[in-house]
Design a binder for these strands. Structure first.
Length: 467
RNA sequence: GCGCCGGUAGCUCAAUUGGCAGAGCAUUUGACUCUUAAUCAACAGGUUCCGGGUUCAAGUCCCGGCCGGCGCACCA
């Protein structure tokens, strides 16, 4: 059966429901519209048929009568899920349901599979994730969560544009995977006969653009990390990274809290959110606490990056953490913070002043060179963003990279590699600059009130089926 | 990668101690001029994820594999 190549629809369900809310039972509007969508339910009754049709915006009933509907018998045999285009008058039935009284109709496409049980929908995770197109019709929460994600991305972009950040794109195929501590995916370019890695962060490229004179840049894009899959981790995820010349990390924290609160405002109309049954507020300002003070509070004694390394190591092993020989006091303090504090940080908060040992791209604090001007924001027990005053000194940067290379040699497969091109870029002069990386999937989870990252990713990474 | 749990009709789910593999919806056929998950009647629908094993008998017990959920690890 051939189907049309085109259909001129001129109305959507939800606006019709609104426009004709005043029609009383049995009243006819006299207005003919053309609507299109999928048949979700069908109730036939002899020479009448009632279908529930859904489009992007909502649902409306299609009211067919053998007396006035062309090809009535065929209409009554439509399958659940079939796409139809319908021309008819907007009426309200005697029983009060706003309807399009079908004069003529066309089947635009046939659905060979249904969209699950018409009451329970589709619940099987495997089916939902592998065939999101069906899940989207079967489950309203899938539609709202993915829509929220889209709105979060739109809001973030518009707010960056409004703050005079220029949107740029940097390479995803990188000869050296760098800018974060993570294991990369590798691939091969045939014509160049070269190994490439999918980027784990766009950070160094973006700072090179600042060297080049773009004072404010941002990139909203995918990064790839070859690590575990969990309800909070997808191998490819979306990060907003931005850099502002002449700012320090204090400026960037202010921008971050305003940005996130603004996104919540744009998408939800409020900064007060309920996540998994617990409330919190995105409203700025967010508290700023040093890592050392939070860790001290948690362990019940004063600790800092200057606490003897062996004492920090003991506090860690007391808590069941295996301490590696290569860890210095800074790494130990950072680990101590993570095991004692991280998951308790429910309300949005900035954790600041990270040890230089775990921050190879951050600028040292002027008053304490063992610490950096670095922050991470936390909400609902999860890291949401990471930012710092950028290290602009090429000599110090080379020393940091060399330290990373030593860690790599000692078996740390997430340590960074030395990037000579980046050091050369710094030698041309990076002005004082602050940067931010914000995990957009995590933010979308908070906004959409989803506990699994896959619910805010249309097609999450799954193991291919094989046999 | 490790641990726990799960996989039964297209979808949602049953199946007692190891004892004939079932229901609702969808599909097919029929009835019905105001239905709302319409209703009523009937037909059909199965490699119980895959492969071995134990047993008179396996959806159920054992071993291996595949895929998924959750937790841990890694990480954002």
């Amino acid at each position: 059966m051939s189907t049309p190549y085109q259909f001129d629809h001129n109305a959507h369900c939800a606006p019709l429901q609104e426009t004709y809310a005043h029609l009383s039972d049995g009243e006819e509007s006299g207005v003919v519209v053309k609507v299109a969508g999928r048949v979700m339910l069908m109730r036939t009754q002899g020479k009448l048929a009632f279908a529930t049709m859904r489009d992007l915006t909502g649902e409306i009933q299609l009211f067919a009568m053998s007396a006035i509907t062309a090809e009535f018998e065929e209409f009554a045999k439509l399958h659940l899920g079939d796409w139809v285009g319908v021309t008819g008058e907007v009426v309200r039935t005697k029983r009060g349901e706003l309807s399009v009284k079908v004069a003529s109709w066309e089947r635009l496409a046939e659905a060979l599979h249904n969209f699950g049980d018409k009451w329970a929908g589709i619940t099987d995770y495997d089916l939902r994730y592998r065939h999101r197109e069906a899940d989207l019709w079967a489950n309203a929460t899938t539609r709202t969560s993915l829509t929220r994600r889209s709105e979060v991305l739109r809001s973030a972009r518009e707010r960056c544009w409004a703050a005079n950040f220029v949107e740029v794109e940097t390479p995803m195929l990188n000869a050296i995977p760098t800018g974060a501590a993570a294991r990369p995916f590798s691939t091969h370019h045939n014509a160049l006969d070269s190994q490439f890695f999918l980027r784990i962060a766009p950070e160094l490229w973006l700072k090179r653009l600042v060297v080049g004179g773009f004072e404010r840049v941002f990139e909203l894009g995918r990064v790839f990390r070859n690590e575990g899959v969990s309800p909070r981790h997808n191998p490819e995820f979306t990060m907003l990274e931005l850099y502002a010349a002449y700012w320090n990390y204090e400026d960037m924290m202010s921008f971050t809290e305003e940005l996130v609160a603004g996104i919540a405002m744009d998408v939800l109309g409020t900064t007060e959110v309920t996540y998994q049954g617990r409330e919190f507020s995105f409203a700025a300002p967010w508290p700023r606490r040093t890592m050392a003070s939070l860790a001290s509070e948690a362990v019940g004694e004063e600790v800092s990056v200057h606490t003897p390394r062996e004492h920090l190591a003991k506090l860690l092993s007391d808590r069941g953490v295996e301490v590696h020989a290569s860890w210095g006091a800074g790494r130990c303090l950072s680990e101590l913070f993570e095991v004692t504090c991280e998951e308790n940080l429910w309300n949005p908060m900035f954790v600041i002043d990270f040890p230089v040992e775990v921050s190879p791209l951050s600028r040292r604090r002027a008053d304490d060179p063992e610490l950096t001007e670095r922050f991470e924001s936390y909400a609902a027990g999860r890291e949401l963003s990471n930012g710092f005053s950028e290290l602009i000194d090429p000599v110090d940067q080379r020393a940091r990279f060399e330290e990373q290379a030593r860690l790599a040699a000692a078996g740390d497969d997430e340590a960074m590699q030395i990037d000579e091109d980046y050091i050369k870029a710094l030698e041309w002069g990076l002005p004082p600059t602050a940067g931010l990386g914000l995990g957009m999937d995590r933010l979308a989870m908070l906004i959409a009130d989803e506990s699994n990252i896959r619910e805010v990713i249309a097609f999450p990474t799954l193991k291919p089926l094989r046999d």
